[in-house]
Nucleic acid binder design. Structure first.
Lengths: 235, 235
DNA sequence: TGTACATCAGTGAACGCGCGTTCACTGATGTAC
DNA sequence: TGTACATCAGTGAACGCGCGTTCACTGATGTAC
């Protein structure tokens, strides 16, 4: 065992208190990536890893929730950056939407605990505007608008479509995280299948010209392609 | 304040140790419904609420995880019962799938913490077979098979379709739970929209006859319905 | 240039708490004789 | 029917631990004169 590693930090310069703040957020983020819940990372552990005493944390954050919130904001920014980069070279709005969605899910799978923290755990301070003003959400919604303008999705309010597609991406992302052992087969394929099915479903709703209900879905399918097999009596 | 309520239980009869076990599970389940995480419910709190001392719990469960696992099993059983009841009077496989999906999401929204525990939190002891043999999953998959047999979904392995539809239901369910403050509008409508879009997407994949990719989706849409508006240059 | 002083980032020690789990024990119940 | 005894569900007290947070303090830094 090594000695209790008292690597004392150099004290910050007068004006540069923000440096320690940023370092605390970065370290907390790193530790949270390896924990399975917020309770798994303590203020003391963060302080230790930064090389500072626990009370120092309170010079920069009101309390633990405040620190966690800062990490969540950082995670969302990273997610947005990953999405933007993935969608930068898309050929059209539909491709961009796909690239965004794939990048979203890949981020979730690559940083499961960060994703859990940001999108699956209960919000410590829930705020509509904060989510809707979130860069990732804004970029996603803008692309849905492009799809509407391109005639891919039915005209109208983009918000429900954005929420629906987000649900689809979140569904496959969070299920991959929560139940990674399921027989997903090739993960990228599964993700693309789900995202395309959702997008296609919405596009098809536009084709049908009416909101989809199961009755309409069935009717629509019957009209266009009569059953290839006789339905068996259900056991 | 009332006196420390020492309501001592009657000691169980010799053979009826299972009665206390069941009572512990029921109480733990009730307490978990009001907590935001497993850490929010302690062995001590469960013991208190049952009217028993903490060590008694260990006569019936190896440790806390074991107790939680019993609650999760109970939650899944309740979920399956709710789904079965909802789908009992469905007219066809597609309607049954819809009823199952709606019941699934309703259960999640009505019991958010139970759903979080069972489907969103990390599995304490992950087990493929346990999930795939789970009644709710089996019933869901069987209905997908019926849909395939009825020609609604493309022929082939039902498992990917089941997983995809589960992802869709899980997506809207868990997002409603994690971000209830978003502008969902009418919740039932949002749920039906997402589920139908997913189902319709898969059905449409069957129509197209090839796996969906964004390129194919766009092409397919263009072939069948040229853009109603000229795409604007993206800003 | 030198010195007294104000500032404030960070410290050390402690507060009070609740946790999961263990262990020797109790005492009501059922049973053997 | 009566009594000694074995069983074992449940108890009381404690173990060792880590937690979030507070508070009076320190001492390097920058500044006023």
């Amino acid at each position: 065992m090594t000695a209790p590693a008292v690597v004392r930090r150099r004290r910050s310069q007068r004006g540069s208190g923000d440096q320690l703040r940023a370092e605390i957020v970065a370290v907390a983020k790193r530790l949270l990536a390896a924990a399975t819940s917020v309770d798994g990372v303590s203020i003391r552990a963060v302080a230790d890893a930064v090389g500072v005493t626990p009370p120092s944390i309170y010079l920069h954050f009101a309390d633990k929730n405040d620190l966690i919130a800062a990490v969540v904001a950082d995670v969302f920014a990273e997610l947005d950056a990953a999405m933007l980069e993935a969608g930068a070279r898309a050929q059209g709005p539909m491709e961009k939407l796909r690239d965004y969605g794939m990048a979203y899910v890949r981020f979730a799978v690559d940083h499961p605990e960060h994703y859990r923290l940001a999108a699956m755990d209960p919000c410590p301070r829930p705020d509509v505007d904060e989510v809707l003003a979130n860069s990732a959400f804004v970029h996603f919604n803008a692309t849905v608008v492009e799809c509407i303008e391109a005639g891919i999705f039915p005209a109208g309010d983009p918000l429900p479509i954005t929420l629906d597609l987000w649900s689809a991406a979140h569904g496959i992302a969070s299920l991959l995280i929560a139940k990674p052992f399921l027989p997903w087969g090739d993960r990228d394929q599964a993700v693309e299948r789900v995202l395309c099915a959702a997008a296609l479903g919405h596009a098809a709703v536009g084709l049908v010209g009416e909101p989809a209900t199961p009755a309409r879905v069935t009717e629509w399918l019957k009209r266009r392609r009569p059953s290839r097999r006789t339905p068996r009596a259900s056991r």
